[in-house]
Design a protein around this nucleic acid. Structure first.
Lengths: 263, 263
DNA sequence: TCGGCCGCATCGAAATTCGATATGGTCGGG
DNA sequence: CCCGACCATATCGAATTTCGATGCGGCCGA
């Protein structure tokens, strides 16, 4: 009934139950994006079957759900349209695109833009754009992919801009899981990496989120100095040693992030 | 009040007004993705201010809208999460990604996947994934971008798989506008290009949607032979002549599309 | 100082949503 | 061959939830 505290609490009088339940339904597909029957939807979203039926029909009629041959419901392609609108509407992303294009051209490695996410309690970052490198094969698309703040170079670079107590708070609330065998899970080690990033102005991570990957990120600040996102440069360990990667790309990432800061 | 006929009509008893209005609100940002005040939202979505207030608060509390410093509402980053779920859930996209990665590696040009969109009356196609080429600068991201079916090589390749009367119907319902000075606007010319594509098994277009761009696409068929999307290869006119581009890439596009068909 | 728009809040009326329930179909196992 | 389970779909009376007119204080530009 009560909303998770991570989003602003509002007057219950203004809260639309049916809209909220509709959102529960579409979010149910985050756990498992397969087509679902009404019964499955009801269970996954925590509503009764009648509600699932009404919501399903309404979202179906609007194109946010689509029907398989068997009548099950799956996510509709209109979500692509909405995320496109979002990307267009985000002022940072608009501003960043040309900068990142240049950066990728100069670096000849993959370049990502991620958004620090205070509305999600800062526990995760969301990738917004990716400029692939020549041979990149891993993930073609990742707009919308989330990763834990503590495990990514971009997240750590953002943490480095926050006061110690906020860092500690965020780390304390993080659920530490291993994304790769190399993921650091010790809070003190992570904290040390954040402090190092604070001193350096960027953060480097080796195989923290993906095996074989070396990544480096610099945080983007708003006009108050708070982190709003990060510029990532990522390469393959088969082509780079850590010191070489650091030497070559740290200045480029910091310059790009600096150019995007303060807006 | 009555829904556009393009989506399945449902029993009015099952239709949730408030959900539908919430969708009107988020779709209002398609026209102009700027932050809006409640009054502006109300006007843009065709609802009253009270409804805008309730819907705004509800979507805000769930992270689908965010607030600027001035209190205006803009689209929230959760739309990225939803489109990510959609991309993950779409069986064609999942299947296509490795194929397109290989294709891009072989072609060394930009490769796109678009979806034919019967739920939108087949009037437009939606781009789902893009694999950039080395020097690509135009658009980093385009998942969610829509283009008219009649104007794109991918759309025409899809039309080529449909019976004549359906092609004519779709073209007749299309609103022809010039995307570039070179966009063909004569229905007979477009129809001829579709017929050519039917004979060739692929469709080539020069500067139809973007100046300086030459694009070639082959349609992907479902197991009944109906078009469900297209594989695009796009290059720059500064590097390719039409015959060379055709010779080199038509077989590759057709092979990839064939491999993805019939699922 | 005025007028307009802003976000935010209130409240009575009632339309809209709710949820239990029913129907007929399909699928798979016993 | 029939049974049970689950499916999408449909119905309907009850009442919760939504509706929308209205009011408030604040901010900004005229």
């Amino acid at each position: 009934m009560s909303q998770p505290h991570r989003f602003p609490t509002i007057d219950d009088r203004l809260f639309l139950q049916s809209v909220s339940r509709a959102l529960d339904v579409i979010e149910a597909y985050a756990a498992s994006p397969r087509p679902m029957s009404l019964g499955e939807i009801a269970e996954a979203a925590g509503i009764n079957k009648s509600a699932a039926q009404r919501i399903g029909q309404t979202l179906l009629s609007r194109g946010y759900l689509e029907q398989t041959e068997t009548g099950r419901l799956k996510l509709g392609r209109l979500f692509l349209d909405r995320s496109f609108d979002y990307l267009r509407s985000n002022e940072l992303i608009e501003r960043a695109t040309p900068v990142l294009t240049d950066l990728r051209k100069a670096a000849e490695e993959r370049v990502d833009l991620s958004l620090f996410d205070p509305v999600n309690d800062s526990l995760s970052i969301v990738y917004a754009t990716r400029m692939q490198s020549k041979r990149e094969t891993f993930y073609a698309t990742l707009a919308g992919r989330r990763q834990p703040t503590y495990a990514t170079s971009g997240g750590r670079a953002c943490l480095a801009l926050l006061p110690d107590e906020e860092v500690d708070d965020i780390l304390a609330r993080s659920v530490i899981t291993r994304l790769t065998p190399k993921t650091e899970t010790d809070l003190e080690t992570i904290r040390a990496a954040v402090m190092q990033a604070r001193a350096d102005g960027y953060c480097l991570g080796v195989e923290q989120a993906l095996l074989g990957e070396i990544a480096l990120a610099a945080a983007i600040r708003d006009r108050n100095g708070r982190p709003i996102g990060a510029v990532h440069i990522a390469g393959s360990l088969s082509e780079w040693t850590e010191p070489d990667f650091r030497r070559r790309f740290a200045p480029m990432a910091m310059e790009a992030a600096g150019a995007l800061s303060g807006g």
